[in-house]
Design a binder for these strands. Sequence first.
RNA 1: GGCAAUGUAGCUCAGCUGGUUAGAGCGCAGCAUUCAUAAUGCUGAUGUCGCUGGUUCAAGUCCAGCCAUUGCUACCA
Length: 682
Amino acid sequence: MKARKILVTMALPYANGAIHLGHLMEAIQTDIWVRLQKMRGNDCVYVCADDAHGTAIMLSAEKQGISPEQLIDGVKRAHQQDYAEFLIGFDNFHSTHSEENRELSESIYLALDKNGHIARRAISQLFDPEKELFLADRYITGTCPKCKTPGQYGDNCEACGSTYSPSDLIDPRSSISGATPIEKESEHFFFDLPQFRTMLQQWTRSGTLQDAVANKLSEWLDDDLQQWDISRDAPYFGFEIPGAPGKYFYVWLDAPIGYMASFKNLCARTDYKFEDYWSPESDAELYHFIGKDIINFHTLFWPAMLTSAGYRTPTAVYAHGFLTVDGTKMSKSRGTFVNARTYLDHLHPEYLRYYLAAKLGPGIDDLDLNLEDFALRVNSDLVGKVVNIASRCAGFITKGFSGRLANKLDDANLIASMQSAQQEIGQYFEQREYSKAIRNIMALADHANQYINDKQPWVIAKSAPDSPELQRICTTGLNAFRLLICYLKPVLPAMAAKAEAFLNVEPLQWDALNSQLLDHTIAQFTPLMTRVEMDKVQAMIDATKQEFNQNSSAVSTTVAVEDATGFEPEIEFDAFSRVDLRVAKVLAAEHVEGADKLLQLTLDLGSDKNGKPIQRTVFSGIKSAYDPATLVGRLTVIVANLKPRKMKFGMSEGMILAAGPGGKEIWLLEPDANTQPGMRIT
RNA sequence: GGCAAUGUAGCUCAGCUGGUUAGAGCGCAGCAUUCAUAAUGCUGAUGUCGCUGGUUCAAGUCCAGCCAUUGCUACCA
């Protein structure tokens, strides 16, 4: 069989934080697959890099009083160290902040532009006037306009889950300088994704994606695709856009190009040829392993960019779900947001590799790390079943035969049946059905233990410790062990290496499954793996909690304290006076076609200085409580200076006030009949 | 609110295009064994297959509604 040429990537970790269990799940999934390919004799290259650009990194560096370059250098070292200790076998780990990536990003951008796939237009964004910096949503905090929880980010509220645009926040602040942001225009560059709709519709349905992913994407592809904003204004840590001083590539533009850059960097010191893997005529396979949160970047923007720029598209993109711990989202306060380093301080990396392998499938479902199950499963399978087979045979061989194996098996059928599983197990690994592969392997381990039980070598050893039969039985047991190690090697490379030393053999390749180990001297047996101790697991959780407490007490800002009234935190009169409440009269009220909850109200707000009447259109979610006909002519209260909000059915130019729990029970505020439309409420 | 995924033994999960008494591993109980890192083997118990209806000779498996969890998304101004 001809060796396949394969290039594999996993998502680039962001250079602004430590590697945690979530990163590791992806790294382990990818690494197992790559190790399998290599064991089977395929030419498989595994590259990765740190994702080193963006505002977050720029600000982090500033906070620490170092340059971004210094920051990312330090983080990169830590990342590589963490991955290395988890036995992630990259062929290259590079950085997106590299010359290779700059050249590739520039040339790809220039190709996109030349092909008419770059649009330019001015957009308006919130801007920090003190810091002189455009603000992404997450750098703006303020009070949630819905539930009034303070300290919420610019895009959604953590307390009530509502989403909004940053300009809707009450009392918005730049979380960088504390200044009140202003709106400012700037020219941005856009990648014209809609031009690739047809190409993407075909590509996403061509077997390159998991069904669930393709289905999800078709929602976007059937809808209007948006142009993708790929530029950011200075100051920004990244690459300046050629011919556009002060404009930088958005971090997500050059991040996937980092896959190419890392590979190019590898090519420079090996015989690999960049074009062999990236030209449209390439016969190499290209796979991206990613999390389901970044599917759109890898399955829409990325293939479209590659196509425009004259490169090949990925053979497949494999998305996985999120990792949960004990059934819930990883949480810092619960101590389940465990960093790689904290794990390594307490537990052996291969425990995690094995447990995740035992549960990983090809889908995008989330995977739960149940800590108790983790300990029980690893102990039972690895120590109790697999390693135990060697442990219970080795002593007899060492004592009775000076470590020499027999030249013949006692039970050739057992070994043959274990060998014949290679087709199925290999398939499962190849298809990322690791849990099924592991299940099969453990069934084989059960057979081996049954065999030893049936043969009772200890009984023979008592009367004849040098009996040839005893030697053949233990030789059979150790051959079974050797096959199991071979199957598990992609998952447990370090344990496999120890086993190879014990068996006194060359590093096992997949075709070792077709041979037997006979008439051969083995080394002294030493424990290959010790049990997971639950108190170590607990210590890891405790340490994570402690890290969190230290960090949060160090950073802790004054959090508004809620009192028994449940009222909002006290505000200055000034803050109140900025809210312009007016009496309004309902001129018209009607149902909105297609809306479940909204009524469209036309309101009279009196007249302006020139005597011209002021009318406002407001959409209000009170359909469940009011028949529009009964509203006409009523007086109510409107927030008159609320920024107009674009809604699905039109602009809503204000907000009317009501109270009640919802549903039928919503009551509109109604001022005294003597008031007039337009009167200010103070 | 909409859309999607998930919901099967105490735990983690498998159950393909509907078809005999619903499975595995772990855990649990009993027995056996003592070579082995108290590891192994045998036997066994445990499930209204989220809930309610429907289609069918037959449903965990198909359909509808509902509930819960998660994710995405929104007409919560």
